[in-house]
């Protein structure tokens, strides 16, 4: 077993364990901690999958931001009896059963698909980059630069060969093949979304301002 495989199984178990304990735990604070464990291990899985930047973002935004927010919420609202929630035994068994059935359905459909075969079928007609360039090879998880460029709509990983005058057999009719999807628009528009959400959240969270106090 290679180191990567060992790491994968270690963190897969941690991720699943965290998720299960979020689902079964009766104590909100424990749930929050399990969530941290689960999300943190997922970040490591991202690193294993060669997505370093996504892994770091997951740690920073999700674990260091969103979960902190949730824990804050727990702390502000957890008073006495409501910290612990007891659900009845029948409920627990029923939901556990539903969960197992659900898991069965998803795992028999999704993991039964031959992904390699599908990739081959789909790969026909996608443009591929001519050469991967950069300081460090992308295959090893150094996707920061290509990601950054794709936020500027520059798909250096896909479109580099478009401008080159390679006679192409597949696309003789169109002289300018379409560009691959770049993410300039979502990158920009999400800032408006965040602004709106910030305004909304701060409106809801702040105390009602006293009217007519400024002389």
């Amino acid at each position: 077993m290679s180191v990567e495989t060992m790491l994968f199984w270690l963190f897969a178990i941690l991720t699943c364990g965290g998720a299960v304990s979020v689902a079964v735990s009766q104590n909100v604070v424990r749930m929050a901690f399990s969530l941290v464990l689960c999300l943190g291990s997922t970040a490591v899985m991202f690193l294993l999958l060669g997505a370093d930047f996504v892994g770091a973002t997951q740690l920073m935004v999700y674990v260091g931001g969103t979960v902190v927010l949730l824990v804050f919420g727990v702390m502000l609202t957890a008073t006495g009896p409501f910290t612990k929630i007891k659900s009845s035994g029948a409920d627990a068994i029923l939901s556990g059963l539903i969960g197992v059935i659900f898991l069965f359905i998803i795992s028999t459909t999704v993991t039964a698909v031959d992904w390699g075969d599908i990739s081959q079928k789909v790969a026909i007609g996608t443009h591929q980059k001519t050469a991967a360039r950069g300081f460090n090879p992308e295959q090893q998880g150094n996707t920061t630069r290509p990601l950054g460029l794709s936020f500027l709509s520059v798909r250096a990983d896909r479109d580099l060969n478009l401008s080159r005058n390679v006679p192409s057999v597949e696309k003789p009719v169109e002289d300018a093949p379409k560009l691959s999807s770049g993410y300039l628009l979502p990158f920009e528009i999400v800032s408006i979304h965040l602004l709106v959400v910030l305004v909304g959240a701060s409106y809801l969270a702040r105390a009602k301002r006293r009217v007519a106090t400024n002389q």
Binding site: L152, S153, L160, L162, S163, L179, L185
Partner: peptide, 19 residues
């Protein structure tokens, strides 16, 4: 180079059409 012409094309498309 390649990336330069790609950027030019994108800049053109974004400012002249998309916006």
């Amino acid at each position: 180079n390649d990336i330069g012409s790609l950027v030019v094309r994108l800049l053109d498309e974004t400012t002249k059409t998309s916006v």
